[in-house]
Design a protein around this nucleic acid. Structure first.
Lengths: 306, 306
DNA sequence: TCTCGATCATACCCAAAGCGTATCAAACAG
DNA sequence: CTGTTTGATACGCTTTGGGTATGATCGAGA
């Protein structure tokens, strides 16, 4: 089998066209170098790489061809070492991140943009999914990290709170309930039909909304269900009802809807980054390092920012 | 330095994910294999390729990246061996061939087509040139072989006669000298202006033409010189004169010229393949082997064919 | 929880591979 | 024709790498 040592030696001999000088450059003496080339020629099937009939040796055509190939192989090897080291350092590789749709309007875009500029060789794969589904995909090793809304720590997963936001009401712009101040009371929503997502998709968020309205004395009448936030807001715009959504959805600006802060103060929800403590790859480690400074430990900091 | 032995072992371990089984496949025992992987990880800069914390070892992300790279390197190596052997066998490589313009109308096209179909991986480089120039380029090692017209063996070169042909007259179709039979006497050309090439370009052919006309009792009056056969025939077509050219030029068919066999019998010329005996590369060897069956040893065989 | 089997790591020894010194053989310059 | 240069060969020795024995650790099952 041809070892890289033979390739290295061959390239130096091919460069010097002189066994003695080549041996010096390789920090060895001439006889072993001669044997190396002989062995290489043998391994290639007794192909003559050099023409030694005269005093000055010369590359045969086969030798010239092999120079090109050998150089390519050693380049490839150097590249392999570099790439592997970068993957080990978490500077290169693949990162699979799950996220709930609202993250697309809050932390996700900025997070990815900043991370991509710091780690340009990391290929990020995104998968929109519910919180429960993400937990399952993390357990199965399909995902490296997830972005989801939670109140309690997710079992078996590490987590980092990234974003706190209140819930807000969303109404058709034509609705008489829409106020100039941007704030409205919850109570009047009692009479409105609601557009909401099916509870299974995000039970904790769903229950928070229901608990909030029930504290105000009513259970919302869900006139229409939709699975995605964008769709919910589209249906609100179409006049099918009102809804209560995370504040970040205000980033989805539409002329035909208005968002309203609620009083009494609507509950806040937190978007967490979650991952498995036991399966930390270097790329994930890089990503976590990148995210940690962005953690929102206290709700006050979020308030201050607004 | 990373040897291919380490790459081979690594790929088997990565495939089996089990040191013991991998060692069996590699025809060695487990401890040295463990050391090989340790050495490989050390050579990569203490990068962990496998996760050995659990019973079942697993590839790290760096390990996964290195699998791809290592496989590529070994593939490249196999390809290098194959290609080098093919070059050594003369099945691949580059062949630089010089030729005189008339060869383009006689042996060259067929020769190259047949050779290319037998040796598809040989890259043939063509260089149109005079006979003397070809001899010089062969001596300098620029050319591997040449196609030229000669009467005497070229000094320091091996040669193989490939094509024998008589000289023929070429006249404007409108010329009253053009006969129906396709044969004409030389004598009437005495009164015609000639289009010929400068003597330096092909002294032996030039002298043959002059000797022939002088035997018929005249020296041609060269009204116009041109370096290329196509141009000479073009000028004949344009009515600037007549000429005497190798018979193969009849392959350059034009409505406005006619070719005529000459009487008394015009001298024959031979196109030779020439090469340096001392610089025979394998590709050249293949080419010579391909050409030898085409050699025309006796003029009779050529005659017989017509 | 404890034990045992499976599996990778380590220690140590030996054989093979590879390097160095000495020398030979051939080619070329003078 | 001779001496010098240069690649090839011979042989001894060091180093490398593989084998055997054994240790350490993890996990399955009692």
């Amino acid at each position: 089998m041809i070892e890289t040592r033979l390739l290295r030696s061959f390239l130096v001999v091919a460069d010097e066209l002189h066994f003695g000088r080549a041996a010096t450059r390789l920090h060895l003496t001439q006889p072993p170098l001669t044997r190396q080339i002989q062995q290489l020629e043998g391994d290639l099937g007794d192909v003559a790489l050099f023409d030694r009939t005269r005093r000055q040796i010369a590359l045969t055509q086969a030798g010239q061809a092999f120079v090109v190939e050998a150089r390519r192989i050693l380049d490839q090897l150097a590249h392999a070492v570099d790439r592997t080291q970068r993957v080990a350092r978490g500077e290169s590789g693949r990162l699979r991140i799950g996220f709930i749709s609202t993250a697309n309007y809050s932390v996700l875009p900025g997070l990815l943009k900043a991370f991509a500029s710091r780690f340009p060789d990391v290929e990020v794969e995104l998968l929109e999914s519910t919180g429960d589904e993400q937990a399952r995909l993390l357990a199965d090793g399909i995902l490296d990290a997830g972005l989801l809304i939670a109140s309690d720590p997710v079992p078996d997963l590490e987590s980092l709170p990234l974003y706190r936001e209140p819930l807000v009401a969303v109404l058709p712009r034509s609705s008489p309930l829409a106020s100039r101040t941007g704030t409205m009371a919850v109570k009047p929503l009692r009479a409105e039909p609601f557009v909401l997502f099916p509870r299974v998709l995000a039970p904790s968020l769903y229950d928070k909304i229901i608990a909030y309205t029930e504290k105000a004395g009513f259970s919302p009448y869900v006139a229409q269900e939709a699975r995605q936030m964008q769709t919910i807001i589209g249906l609100v715009a179409g006049g099918l009802g009102v809804s209560i959504v995370p504040a970040c959805m205000q980033n989805l600006r539409r002329d035909d809807v208005v968002y309203q802060r609620l009083s009494p103060k609507a509950p806040e929800i937190t978007t967490f980054l979650v991952w498995r403590a036991d399966r930390s790859s270097s790329v994930l480690e890089s990503f976590l390092e990148h995210c940690r400074p962005l953690a929102k430990t206290s709700p006050k900091r979020v308030r201050a920012k607004r």
